[in-house]
Design a protein around this nucleic acid. Structure first.
Lengths: 151, 151
DNA sequence: GACAGATAATTGCTTGCGCACTTATCCAGC
DNA sequence: GCTGGATAAGTGCGCAAGCAATTATCTGTC
């Protein structure tokens, strides 16, 4: 096995580890958020992304990217959240193709209730990962990512 | 904002980055594998996991864990792969509840064809991530995970 | 100012997933 | 050696996802 093959194997292993850690965190978050706030992970992600816009609107497409979802899935996700009165669609005057979404106060309240659940569960999931041999290194490396600029 | 809130924000940011990188890689792999080998990412993952067992069998449950899938989803995934003659179920004599699976030669051949696609696509996806500001740090940190023992 | 091509969002359709329940088998204690 | 509880896998069902096609709107070119 040459040095090139080695690099291939390292990447493949890194990817498997990444996928495993992702699955573990997502499962933990999904359970907790569903139980305690009636939200799936993507639903929480969307509400959180909206709140992060700090009162400013977000187009469907930005939501798609934030949630890593197809446009059609985003439409239906927004439908569900709108039916639950957690967000509103706002037709945008300057580009009538575009649709903005923003949190309702009910959405903000639910998010306030869900956020501590999310944060606590994420911490627990990462702690657990740090004690799992295959995941520990990657889990720890998350601490060292450069901070987001707005924080 | 106190120091505790800071840690919370760092974790949340790390998780969003992990999720974004995961989504990017999965999308790239899914496209390429589907186009060039007719396999989804989980299907490839299962075949690859089986081949990594080096001729040894794998129980359904191990497959579940390797693919981060529920038992029922694993059953159906194995059904699909068995219908395509890529793997075989083998009833296990010493525990008749358990079912082992192993690659057929057709499965091995398809995997041989798919693996370079996978490896090449993964490399490209990671390269691209390393040039995306939000993802670069995490993508690079994958190189530094401790190597798997059997490699 | 009309037309061609691009872009934003939605809808129809198919597929794969998880949950809850069922079936088959193992094993521990009596 | 039988019975109760645990464990492995499979099934019925509803839901959410992606792809391809559709509709509405914008933009540049003549």
């Amino acid at each position: 096995m040459g040095i090139g093959d080695d690099a291939v194997e390292v990447r493949a292993h890194g990817w498997r580890t990444l996928a495993a850690l992702h699955a573990a965190i997502e499962a933990a978050l999904g359970q907790a958020l569903e139980d305690e706030a009636g939200l799936s992970v993507v639903e929480y992600t969307v509400l959180d992304a909206l709140s992060r816009q700090d009162g400013w609107h977000m187009r469907m497409q930005q939501l798609s990217r934030a949630a890593a979802l197809s446009p059609s899935a985003t439409t239906r996700l927004v439908n569900r959240l709108e039916e639950r009165a957690l967000l509103q669609r706002i037709l945008c005057a300057d580009d009538r193709r575009g649709i903005y979404t923003e949190l309702t106060t009910a959405g903000e309240r639910l998010l306030e209730r869900a956020r501590p659940v999310h944060d606590r569960t994420l911490e627990a999931a990462l702690d657990e990962a740090e004690q799992t041999p295959e995941l520990a290194a990657l889990a720890r490396s998350l601490h060292e990512l450069t901070r987001p600029l707005h924080a």
